[in-house]
């Protein structure tokens, strides 16, 4: 049973928490000890807002072990509003409707289960931005 590795990254998985480099201002996801842009120590937590656009995507028809139950599913590189790219699944969308540039927002979903008696691993996925009546009204006004 693998528990600690998932527990250790809970803030990243559940809150999309990364870091901002205090030297060069680079926003980092995932967080790491050394900023890859300026090579200075990075340690200030930064919560990403969860908005982004699809940079690229692919539908997985042959899922790796542990993900068979979810297939076929679409994985994507998402360009976060604050800069970084993240790898994640798209959810609540039909593969045929995905396109590069699609605006998406972060949601927390089940990534996988470690068997019926094991841990359920939650984390970020992205879905098309929810259509909102308020936004439509604003657009009209």
């Amino acid at each position: 049973m693998r528990l600690a590795p998932h527990w250790r990254v809970r803030a990243q998985r559940l809150q999309l928490r990364g870091e901002v480099c205090q030297c060069c201002g680079e926003r980092l996801f995932p967080p790491r000890d050394v900023c890859p842009a300026c090579h200075q120590p990075a340690d200030k937590p930064f919560a990403f807002c969860g908005e982004g656009t699809v940079y690229s995507f692919s539908t997985v028809y042959e899922a790796p072990k542990g993900y068979e139950r979810f297939g076929p599913y679409t994985i994507a590189l998402v360009r976060l509003k604050e800069g970084p790219l993240v790898t994640a699944q798209l959810t609540d969308i039909d593969p045929a409707d995905v396109r590069i540039g699609l605006p998406v927002e972060m949601v927390t979903r089940v990534l996988r289960e470690e068997g019926e008696d094991g841990m359920v691993i939650y984390g970020y996925k992205f879905r098309p931005v929810l259509e909102r009546e308020a936004a439509r009204e604003e657009a009209r006004a």
Binding site: V9, Y67, I75, V86, T87, L111, R112, I121, G123
Partner: peptide, 9 residues
Amino acid sequence: EYEGIHGTS
């Protein structure tokens, strides 16, 4: 931790 966990092949 950041690619594999998402079910990417």
